[in-house]
Nucleic acid binder design. Structure first.
Lengths: 202, 202
DNA sequence: CATAAATTTGCGTATCACGCAATATTTCTG
DNA sequence: CAGAAATATTGCGTGATACGCAAATTTATG
């Protein structure tokens, strides 16, 4: 059991490639034909893997379509963890978001986002993912502030609020494209209150 | 086409009864055996309807199990609409929530809530429902404040924040049962900012 | 009671998720 | 480098589901 995480062995690289490929194909099919007409069999054929392998990577076509969006979300936690300890929770979260949305979303991101909002089954899958993000963020906030989410409402509330802000900002930005998404996210964060959390106060 | 909505014709009453029955049976089975072991066929048999009929009411067993929770959520919009026009948005939402959680949840509600949080497939279904609520609340807020959600971020943000608050409060209350759910919801709302919305300000 | 409207039902079909065991590939070890 | 160990892919089989469709049943209307 040797752990070299930098060069990333052939095995892991291949897996990631297959995963990304499957996801991309699934997304394209969904955009061209509509989600209900996407067939796992065809995705697998186009990716040169067996249908069974598709289900080794994803439990459903919806999950495959959503996948890259999910991965982007995981970055939020890392970015939050990377924020300096001195800043307030609100500022740290805002800074993390500003970094996360540093570069404006490209065409693919946007079209996928629109697709997700248009197709109920994708919407549901995305909602599921959002909840997962929320939990991860809550955990990271707990770690950062030294307050257990079980003991105190605040960490969960903060996490839920952030996710809500992102959610609302993206939805709004997609409908009425005024300014950059980054700006809209900033607006949302400025209108929202995130209570600071102290380890001692119950 | 006669519209008597008070006495509610036999037809509608029967439908509601069947729906409630199916949902209740589905929930019980899920609690007894776990969601994955719930069989639509058995639910239908116990409710004295055909399996096909089950799928006329619900697209999946998860939807059936969640159903009553979904219905409770619809009340939030009605309650919000019923709030007097003079009060601030934050106060109106808080008041609506205080009414919604007026009577403390009973055993069934709690055990269902716990089940939902324990079972991923139910969790996903609930998340889907939450998004639907959010949209409905956003619409109602837009109506109340006279601001279109397409034009302005605020209504969506407010709706998302409220749902987030409920979400966090319930999650926290289920884990650490300190005080009543009503109180926790109140705490959450007091820690959250809901910007007031004026119809003229863009 | 007769007719119209809506609901339930049975049937058939296209997917799908997933366990399992065999096979192929990559990685590790000497 | 060769064999062994670990891991991934594949094919197969099964149980379950969602849903369109048309016939049969139930409810509503005059």
């Amino acid at each position: 059991m040797t752990m070299d995480s930098s060069p990333l062995g052939l095995r892991e690289r291949k897996k990631r490639a297959v995963r990304a490929n499957l996801s991309a194909i699934a997304l394209r099919h969904a955009q061209e034909r509509g989600v209900s007409q996407v067939r796992i069999e065809e995705i697998a054929a186009e990716a040169d893997v067996s249908p069974r392998t598709f289900n080794n990577y994803f439990p459903s076509k919806e999950a495959a379509i959503i996948d890259s969006a999910t991965m982007r979300a995981e970055r939020l936690c890392e970015l939050l963890a990377a924020q300096p300890a001195g800043t307030s929770l609100h500022d740290a979260l805002t800074a993390a978001l500003m970094t996360l949305f540093e570069d404006e979303p490209d065409r693919d991101w946007i079209s996928r986002a629109r697709l997700i909002r248009a197709e109920p089954s994708l919407f549901a899958e995305a909602a599921k993912a959002d909840v997962a993000i929320e939990q991860a963020v809550a955990l990271e906030i707990g770690r950062r502030t030294g307050v257990d989410g079980t003991t105190c409402l605040a960490p969960r509330l903060a996490a839920a609020t952030v996710v809500a802000a992102i959610h609302a900002a993206v939805a709004f930005w997609l409908d009425a494209d005024n300014g950059t998404l980054r700006e809209v996210i900033g607006q949302a964060m400025s209108q929202v209150r995130i209570a600071d959390i102290a380890p001692d106060a119950a």
